[in-house]
């Protein structure tokens, strides 16, 4: 049962996932109180090391730690001695000499977080490494789905967009399949990995083929920063086959929900006008709720890693 780090979905078994999802509900209750803070991790120090820009994940981890009364240090390489030529590992070891209890790490290279975890003794949480994994996003997505449907098994979910460059897609697909959801992908072949056998999911080349049958439509962010060549002819072409516009929004199955890990490229993954309806469609558009649930999931993970044997 013991887990030292959260690096990847692969190292979690079903029992871990169910335990995390169950305890997240209790942490979410704290966020609904007037005084949104409990002393569970008082005296613990958590360090956020983000080599890649991030608003929601870093803020989410920071808030999660603070809601549990832990101290947080935010470290960003642009304002550090790395500019003076210190290596990443030396920098991290220096910071850890200051007696942190847990590190949250994001980096642009796949596998970097695992490398760090092998060289330091405290628990490490992967907050996203390259194209590889983003396990806390996948867990908060699963929690959001579970909160809405009160079950996981046999939920049909379409993951739409840039599968190739997306660590969210990789972690989501492996977590959802592990928990017996029915996962489909919707993506142009240029934005799929060459070898899809690892995922073993059926792909559709137009969102209209499947939109009416799915309980969850999960739009991925177009990862422009990782696209080193042009993957589709034009935005208009992409809009025709993949973008979630008004018509497709209305064609979604009764009771289905729309998700996106954020930040949204308006007009590419989702029509801006659909996004602007979120306040009136909270039961259907879950993008804001995902952010809120992110804090609760991260509270559960921090507490889990710092409280077990």
């Amino acid at each position: 049962m013991s887990l030292k780090n959260i690096l990847d979905i692969e190292e979690l078994n079903k029992t871990h996932v169910l335990k995390i999802i169950e305890s997240t509900g209790y942490f979410k209750e704290v966020l609904g109180r007037d005084l949104k803070k409990v002393p569970a991790l008082r005296g613990k120090t958590i360090i956020n090391i983000f080599y890649e820009p991030s608003t929601r994940t870093r803020t989410s981890f920071e808030l999660a730690a603070k809601r549990l009364s832990a101290d947080v240090i935010n470290f960003s390489p642009s304002s550090s001695s790395m500019k003076k030529g210190e290596t990443e590992l030396d920098t991290i070891k220096t910071i850890l000499e200051m007696k942190a209890d847990l590190a949250v790490v994001r980096h642009k290279d796949s596998g970097f977080v695992k490398y760090i975890s092998e060289h330091i003794t405290i628990p490490v949480i992967n907050a996203g490494d390259g194209r590889h994994a983003h396990p806390t996003q996948a867990l908060l997505d699963l929690f959001t789905i579970y909160c809405h449907f009160k079950r996981m098994e046999k939920i049909k979910i379409a993951i739409v967009g840039d599968i190739l460059n997306s660590r969210v897609a990789r972690s989501d697909i492996s977590l959802f399949k592990k928990m017996d959801l029915e996962v489909f992908t919707v993506s142009p072949s240029m934005l799929l990995p060459e070898d899809m056998s690892y995922f073993d999911t059926k792909n559709f080349e137009c969102i209209d083929e499947i939109i009416g049958q799915c309980d969850v439509i999960y739009m991925l962010r177009m990862q422009f920063e990782r696209q080193n060549k042009k993957f589709y002819p034009s935005v208009r072409e992409y809009n025709r086959f993949f973008t979630l516009d008004f018509k497709r929004f209305n064609n979604m199955k009764e009771g289905a929900i729309l998700m996106h890990p954020g930040p949204v490229n308006r007009g590419i993954e989702i029509d801006g006008r659909v996004l602007d309806m979120e306040d009136r469609n909270l039961a259907k558009i879950k993008i804001g709720e995902q952010v809120g649930n992110g804090v609760a999931v991260r509270m559960a993970l921090l507490h889990y890693l710092l409280s077990q044997k």
């Binding site: 209790y26 002393p39 569970a40 613990k44 549990l68 710092l306 409280s307 044997k309």
Partner: peptide
């Protein structure tokens, strides 16, 4: 009272 315990280090 789980969040208020003083024995998190006792695991």
């Amino acid at each position: 009272i789980s969040f208020y315990r003083d024995d998190i280090d006792k695991k």
